[in-house]
């Protein structure tokens, strides 16, 4: 947890996937309250804080529950339906909990050409899951995503706040071991 005070210019720009999240973590307390206040100072309008604020909630709790939606709506003077329309538009917000390691495999054209589908298969087999499921040990969720913007390093796999470039079926096992 970053207890170090963040510069307000970047207070809303922290990675939103972390392994050490806690679904019951209190929202908007301590350093997070400070960040919330700092984020608001960066925009002329409260509504604009919605993406950074939601990201901060996901960073803490790992997903966006309806309770989170209601809290955010209340804090930003929006309706819960509005917040839901936002969380459901932007695909990085998770509508349900995921494993400790959220493994996102790019299967867009650049990675697809280089065998992304096989990487997905290998990852699913190695974690014993189906797409989107949490593995039995609670550690992994594997999903396919669209282009991660690193296409020259296919296949691109993002695990929480880390990017793994040039993943091949042969390196999948090592990748998973490295995570533990």
């Amino acid at each position: 947890m970053s207890e170090r005070k963040l510069h307000p210019a970047v207070a809303g720009a922290q990675p939103m996937y972390r392994a050490e999240n806690d679904p019951d973590a209190p929202l908007f307390e301590g350093a997070y309250k400070q960040r919330f206040d700092d984020i608001l100072t960066r925009y002329p309008d409260k509504r604009a804080a919605i993406l950074p604020v939601l990201a901060m909630c996901q960073e803490l709790r790992g997903w966006i529950s309806s309770e989170t939606i209601e809290r955010v709506a209340e804090l930003l003077d929006l309706t819960p339906a509005y917040v839901l329309s936002i969380t459901s538009f932007y695909t990085m917000f998770r509508p349900q909990p995921v494993g400790k390691y959220l493994i996102q495999v790019c299967t867009s054209i650049g990675c697809d050409l280089c065998g992304a589908e096989n990487v997905v298969e290998k990852l699913l087999a190695a974690t014993g899951t189906r797409t989107g499921e949490i593995s039995e040990d609670g550690l992994y969720t594997v999903i396919e995503v669209e282009c991660l913007g690193a296409c020259g390093f296919a296949t691109v796999v993002q695990v929480n706040e880390r990017v793994y470039e040039s993943v091949k079926t042969e390196t999948v096992t090592r990748l998973l071991e490295e995570l533990r």
Binding site: A13, Y43, D45, R47, L51, T91, M92
Partner: peptide
Amino acid sequence: TVHLGAGAYIAGEETGMLNSLEGR
């Protein structure tokens, strides 16, 4: 200010980006 998107290619279209920046 560094502002992060949250998963939407269409936010790259400039007016989509403005809406997104405004929290829409």
